[in-house]
Nucleic acid binder design. Structure first.
Lengths: 207, 207
DNA sequence: GCGCGAAAAGACCGTCCGTACTATTTTGTT
DNA sequence: AACAAAATAGTACGGACGGTCTTTTCGCGC
């Protein structure tokens, strides 16, 4: 099992690049074979079905995401620095032009799979839940460390962080809004700032 | 031009439902014909190409979005109420189970098209830019009306609103997080609250 | 150098795709 | 009732799809 595994890795590398640009729908045996300079059957020998290719690609992307974003961020100091590292490393990951010229494969897959039950959907959903939990934990820790107020809701904060991430993706990929990266930074700063000091005013609730 | 246009409308209705669930990639002549109980060629007579179908579907979705979300919201009182109406009407639109069982067609299309140049991409991008501008204008008006502080950045605020919207879509469609609608409300309240009073503390900037 | 298993290629199948071209039905008008 | 026009169905074709089977090439321990 010497050479096969390296070609397999090369195939997955090409596949991720392909999916990044064309989406999972563009991940076809023929196109992938052509792209990696192999025959369809030669490529097919490494996987047993199209769905297997899809799962392998998603698995590889998830592993890379973990290695490039989550794990390094977890080595940062607890609290706000770690939280910022999570988001900033996501930004770097999202804009990795070489390995993913079309932006984050997982966000692409998340939308494409969200109404298509099956193993691929569950794989991505689970990865996203873990990512969400990583964010939530980082927020909880920031509270413990005294960086954030105690009445900050980690789940809500994670929701808002994810919003910043998605809005950045949206503005960059579709709208091509210039200065999006700076805007993302502002949004992050403001969100963190709001969690830090100034006991939030309680307004009388309607109804 | 009596009957043809009504069938055409019915086809588009089915098509939107299809795209909502399966994405633009699932919008195929055969599937659509089967779904609307017609022959492929009978259906094809209403359009001149597959891309024409795609464009018609997107155009119809954009028109519906305008009618169901933007225009009604613009009839709300200037300032915060109008802003809230924009977001809340988006929520209703997103969760219109009958006409779009798989959630907002435009967000789906936005991700699928973001790296695929061509008329469909431009159509969606333009619609999204207009939506973003509607948000921005509503924020500007809220500032004029004295609802928000004068140093609020409308572009940033619109970016954050879009983040809330996208995060809601994400949590509902992929993660199926319970209570997402309430969370969205919280995020919106908090964002608006932050723009209202408490002159934001200026922190010394790094570097 | 040889032989053997792994890796890749080649040819091929049935299905569905988009899209022509033609035939048939349905509709509206007189 | 007749008939032209509009709407829809039928048929056919080339290409790409996922997938199988058989053959060839390659890498490596002896």
């Amino acid at each position: 099992m010497g050479k096969g595994s390296t070609t397999r890795a090369r195939i997955l590398d090409d596949a991720i690049r392909l999916v990044s640009v064309e989406g999972l729908a563009g991940l076809t045996i023929g196109r992938l074979a052509e792209l990696s300079g192999m025959s369809k059957s030669g490529l097919f020998a490494h996987f047993e079905s199209r769905e297997a290719v899809e799962l392998a690609v998603l698995g590889e992307a998830i592993a890379r995401f973990r290695d490039a974003v989550v794990l390094p961020a977890l080595r940062e100091p607890r609290g706000e620095p770690r939280l910022r590292a999570l988001v900033n490393r996501w930004r770097d990951w999202e804009s990795a032009q070489v390995s993913m010229p079309g932006g984050c494969v997982l966000l692409q897959a998340a939308v494409e799979l969200d109404d298509r039950p099956g193993p691929p959907r569950e794989l991505v959903a689970e990865a996203m839940r873990q990512w969400n939990e990583a964010l939530r934990r980082a927020v909880s820790i920031a509270i413990e460390e005294g960086h954030f107020r105690k009445d900050v809701d980690p789940a809500l904060f994670a929701f808002q962080l994810q919003g910043i991430i998605l809005s950045t993706h949206h503005a960059q990929r579709l709208l091509r809004t210039p200065g999006t990266s700076a805007r993302m930074e502002q949004a992050l700063d403001q969100l963190i700032e709001g969690a830090r000091k100034a006991p939030r005013a309680r307004r009388a609730l309607a109804r």
